[in-house]
Nucleic acid binder design. Structure first.
Lengths: 228, 228
DNA sequence: CCACATTTTCAAACGTGTTCGGGAATACGG
DNA sequence: CCGTATTCCCGAACACGTTTGAAAATGTGG
């Protein structure tokens, strides 16, 4: 009796569509047109099926995107995490940053509504590493959560600015006409007016990591202070 | 010749709707039902006018919300900003935090798409204060922008978690069924599993300010290092 | 072979933000 | 007083995500 995993046929109409097929098609459309142009109807047409059919294989549009993000999260190459708690937090956070930087729309999806809820075990492993590092450093679990949240938004914010700036660069339909600080009163807001287009200048990765170090240092010291 | 500001009648059909009237009605509906329940059609019905009429007084739904935010931004009580650059950054950022905390949906609107673009002079005054403080401390304008952005997302993230948690509390239709970390594998992710409901625990304002101080210290030191 | 339960598919419809085209009401120039 | 320009209003329609209800296609028990 080797496997005995015979695909025992279940009752009901045989499916013509599979979740994997939907995800593959979605991946293709996103790679081609960008995730903001992905619509349920177009995705269904791509597979050659009615639009409402998708809702039997996927809960939501957001659910579909999260499934893609989870798939991607499992492929993220993970460095060896240091034993020293503070450094472990830094490395895990930087890994999250790099993964999101490579797939910026994941950051957009995760920020819109559900934050990091409904994520799979694999991408959550990095979250676990951050929380564990903070706890090992002496933080309470509650404060460890705060440490992660602060790091998370500090990180996601940088990614969001980059993808928004990139969209602004190409003459896109999504582009807003207002641009950044279009009409600044130079008398009242001299520094902002002097900035001009440099508002959208992106910071290099080193700048991000330096800021991250400062933030983590402060948050961990604060957590250790709570529980002596 | 006192004022001579006679309301010189312009040609065209006399308007039955004013932008101020629309904003007032929107304020009322938001205060009553929450901003996520505000729809263009309901707003138009509240005024007793066709839905498409609103688009002659307001560019967008987002534009309408930004107008409300600008109105609110002008009423934010502003503390005297210290002369010392670092402290000025802290106080301005904390003021932004408190203003957003009092009107959490403003944070949601500002994060979705346009970031802080299309804001009015008055709310931008606090942004100016942060950037000016960083520049006075020795940062380049580009790095001053990065200082602000980091502070901004650190701040907004905290507000977003609060409003999301608040929505989750009341049995709302908006509530997502997934909740936070519903099905965590305690074997793979022990720290997250042990957290349970405490994931949504809110940090007190002091915790926010302490983290802010650490972040600002690190970012300003980094900026001063660039330009000696 | 025949009901029955089960699963999949899909057309129709709802509410959303937004656009389009035409109509209504006014001021102005003759 | 008349025509034109201008401003405003609104019904109809579009694409979107999603729900509802029914029909189609299978396995299973009698």
């Amino acid at each position: 009796m080797p496997h005995a995993d015979a695909p025992r046929p279940r009752p009901g109409r045989p499916p013509t569509t599979s979740r994997a097929q939907i995800l593959a098609a979605a991946r293709g459309l996103i790679d081609r047109d960008g995730w903001e142009r992905l619509t349920i109807r177009k995705l269904a047409a791509e597979i050659g099926v009615g639009a409402t059919t998708l809702y039997h294989h996927v809960q939501d549009k957001e659910d579909l995107l999260l499934l893609l993000i989870n798939e991607y999260g499992e492929q993220v190459s993970r460095p060896r995490l240091p034993d020293e708690p503070r450094e472990r937090v830094i490395v895990a956070a930087a890994t999250i940053h790099d993964a999101l930087a490579a797939w910026p729309w994941a950051a957009e999806v995760l920020t819109t509504d559900g934050f990091i809820a409904r994520l799979g075990d694999s991408p959550l492993g990095l979250v676990e590493a951050v929380v564990a590092g903070a706890v090992d450093h002496g933080c309470t679990p509650e404060h460890a959560v705060y440490v992660f949240r602060s790091i998370w938004y500090y990180t996601v914010g940088e990614i969001l600015v980059r993808s928004h700036t990139a969209r602004r660069g190409q003459g896109d339909a999504v582009t807003r006409q207002g641009a950044f600080f279009g009409t600044i009163d130079a008398g009242k807001l001299p520094h902002l007016a002097a900035l001009g287009d440099r508002w959208a200048v992106l910071a290099p990765r080193d700048t991000y990591v330096d800021g991250l170090r400062a933030l983590v240092d402060g948050l961990l010291a604060q957590g250790a202070r709570v529980r002596p």
